[in-house]
């Protein structure tokens, strides 16, 4: 089967050593595309831009397609300055997660329209292709039917990427919910989010695992899992499947998706996957349900 696997940017605040160690391993993992960089919080600077570029170069040398990802919420002038540096790098493609990135990439520069660009119809796909997008990542709340419809009518040369595994990026805020949970101001956050390599769980008062707090971002409580849909996705010609990193098991998760893509695994793939998400999954968005539903 001819779909590529992509590793989404690390959503959490990991220390520099962990990030570097992670990408040293990624080099040998069965994934074709690696998205790199900080997309959540401008205050997190575990690595400098130059250090990210080093990782990018090392991965590129091992044959990976490397894409530099960008912030979804740009507020300060310094955020734009950093975005500008990323967009004017001459080596690697950029994943735009805000229209500011599209603006800063000279028209025609190849880019990926990331999951935070709202692509809900063909007209928007046409616009992004015109601007230079060579790939679009479908917004997480669209149903499989809508994504398939748009995929079938996408402009020539535009690849479709679908979020198939990981906690879903649901919302962004100016506030930091990790800081709030510790009753400290965002200005004095002392990087509390570094204590939660997989985010901070948020439960309802009846112990329903509802969301995951990740600094200024809220994610789904449970990871999205479209393993059962992989064959369907490949059969309609979806080019890229996206998996979001977690602190444990990313290699194994990629391996299972790779094995399913290669037809080297059958019915019990879900059973092999389950230790890496013991609390369960969701796949409601794909089925046109509430996103939290699993069926």
């Amino acid at each position: 089967m001819a779909a590529k696997l992509a590793l989404a940017p690390i959503p959490y605040f990991w220390p520099k050593e962990q990030i570097c160690g992670f990408y040293e391993q990624v080099a040998s993992w069965p994934v074709e595309i690696v998205y790199l960089g900080e997309t959540i919080c401008a205050k997190r600077r575990a690595l400098s831009f130059e250090q990210w570029l080093e990782i990018a170069q090392q991965l590129a040398q091992t044959g990976k397609e490397v894409v530099l990802s960008t912030l979804a919420l740009l507020e300060a002038g310094s955020d734009i300055a950093m975005l500008n540096r990323i967009c004017s790098n001459r080596q690697f493609a950029v994943e735009a997660n805000d229209m500011a990135a599209t603006q800063l990439l000279a028209r025609g520069t190849p880019f990926v329209s990331g999951p935070h660009i709202n692509v809900y119809n063909e007209e928007t796909l046409a616009l992004l292709a015109e601007e230079g997008a060579y790939r679009w990542v479908a917004p997480i709340e669209l149903s499989g039917a809508t994504i398939s419809h748009l995929h079938a009518r996408r402009p020539a040369g535009l690849e479709t990427e679908i979020y198939v595994f990981g906690r879903l990026p649901l919302a962004f805020s100016a506030r930091c919910f990790t800081a709030r949970a510790h009753n400290v101001a965002k200005d004095q956050c002392a990087f509390r989010c570094a204590d939660y390599p997989d985010g901070l769980p948020l439960w309802t008062q009846e112990q329903h695992r509802l969301f995951t707090i990740n600094g200024v971002q809220l994610q789904s409580g449970l990871p999205c899992n479209l393993l059962d849909k992989v064959r369907d996705l490949v059969s309609i010609g979806v080019e890229v499947l996206r998996i979001s990193p977690q602190s444990q098991g990313t290699e194994q998760i990629l391996g299972i998706f790779r094995a399913v893509l290669d037809g080297k695994i059958d019915g019990d793939a879900q059973a092999i996957l389950s230790p890496w998400a013991p609390q369960g999954y969701c796949n409601g968005f794909w089925n046109g349900d509430a996103g939290m539903v699993w069926r």
Binding site: N118, P139, E141, L170, A171, L218, G284, A290
Partner: peptide, 11 residues
């Protein structure tokens, strides 16, 4: 414009 909390819970 970037909040899917409601669709996550209610569709």
């Amino acid at each position: 414009g970037r909040c899917a909390l409601s669709s996550y819970v209610t569709g």
